[in-house]
Amino acid sequence: MLHSNLLRLVARGSSSRLMSTATKLTTVEVNDETGIATLTMNRPPVNSQNVQLLLDLQASISEIENNKSRGLILTSAHSNVFSAGLDIFEMYNTDVERLRTVWTELQNVWIALYGTSLPTAAAINGHAPAGGCLLATACEYRVMRPNFLIGLNEAQLGIIAPKWLMSGFTNVLPKRVAERALTQGRMFTTQEAFEAGLVDEIASSKEEAVEKCAAFIGSFAKVNPLARGLTKLQFRADNIKEFEKIREKDVADFAALASSPEVQKVMGTYLENLKNKGKK
């Protein structure tokens, strides 16, 4: 954990400017005193990742890199969900080309976030299953509110998480723990995630989570940003190179699997269960 004095120092600055409102599903706000950008997802009700949200995330990450921000904090506008992952409505009862598009844009968001040289942190202010966990683990630091769930639960939907998707997960968890969690489709509570090392800190509110993320980014204030960024990318280079080699095949494999009758049936059952829950 970071020293509380540093947290207070970074938290003093509250002056900020809204940089991006053109994209409807994400906003970018830059703190003028710290130079840190907060990227907020806002696709009600649960930030499920449709093609538009994925495109907006890419545009916002690029904007933050271009405006020379000192770091990026990813969070959600919703009180109980960080991101519910890929929008199953985008994948259920649709054509193969749409499946290819959805998966390609998810790949593009991951490489933009995982491969940026900027310091990155996720203020996880709600549940983060599947693609939500993917976004969080693509960041370097994670702070999560209590009593929520995070994990890669693809196995429960009959989907196989490819190696690139697992890479952020396996970067922060011991291999044995990661393997068991992935094969079980396990969802960690906030406390379990903290104890396992999947998240770095727990915060009582979104505001505190953002402050702790800002403190993490602020800890690099006296480090040469070019040296810091290149060092980070050296750690991630092998995963990125492996991803680039297989990305086209990965899209084809996902489209074939997701369009199969077996997986479509699982998705249909899942959506029906959600519908029934909503009636109660």
Rank of each mutant, 00 (worst) to 15 (best):
S259K: 13
A256F: 13
I160C: 09
L57D: 00
L106M: 13
T189N: 09
T104L: 14
L230R: 11
L271S: 06
W110Y: 11
K68R: 12
L99K: 14
R145E: 13
M1R: 13
V81T: 11
Y141R: 02
E154P: 06
V51Q: 02
E33F: 09
R247H: 12
P45S: 07
M166N: 14
N66T: 10
E195T: 06
R176G: 10
E195N: 09
S48A: 12
N171T: 10
E179F: 14
I124K: 04
R43L: 07
V96K: 15
H127F: 10
P162G: 02
L149Q: 13
T75K: 02
L9C: 13
P129F: 02
N125I: 02
T190S: 14
A112H: 05
F235D: 12
Q264K: 04
P162I: 06
G158E: 01
S20K: 10
A252S: 15
L257N: 08
A122G: 03
N47G: 00
A122D: 04
Q191K: 13
V223H: 13
A77T: 05
I111R: 09
N31Q: 06
N273C: 11
Q191N: 12
S62E: 15
D56F: 00
S117K: 12
G278W: 11
V266E: 05
P174E: 06
A128P: 07
M187K: 08
F169M: 04
G85Q: 02
L113D: 01
S48Q: 12
S204F: 15
N42D: 11
L152N: 05
V28F: 06
I240H: 02
A77Y: 11
G126S: 06
E154N: 15
Q264S: 03
N153I: 07
R70Y: 14
I150Q: 05
Q49V: 00
E97C: 09
L72N: 03
M41V: 00
L18V: 14
N42S: 09
K249R: 15
Q49G: 04
V199M: 05
C213V: 01
L233S: 02
G115I: 01
C133L: 07
I246R: 13
S16I: 04
N147Q: 14
A136R: 01
P146R: 04
F82E: 01
V223P: 07
I73C: 05
L53Y: 01
G71C: 04
P129Y: 03
T26E: 01
S4F: 11
T189H: 07
S167A: 15
S14C: 13
S4V: 06
M187A: 06
R17Y: 15
N273I: 10
T101E: 15
N80R: 15
E211D: 15
S79T: 12
E192G: 02
M19T: 10
L182W: 07
L233H: 03
R186Q: 12
N171L: 14
M91C: 14
A181S: 07
A121W: 10
P261A: 09
L182E: 05
C139F: 10
Y92D: 04
G268P: 03
A252D: 13
Y141K: 00
T231H: 14
A77Q: 10
L39N: 02
I36V: 14
N276H: 13
K265A: 08
L25N: 02
R228D: 02
Y141V: 00
N147P: 12
G278V: 08
N93Y: 07
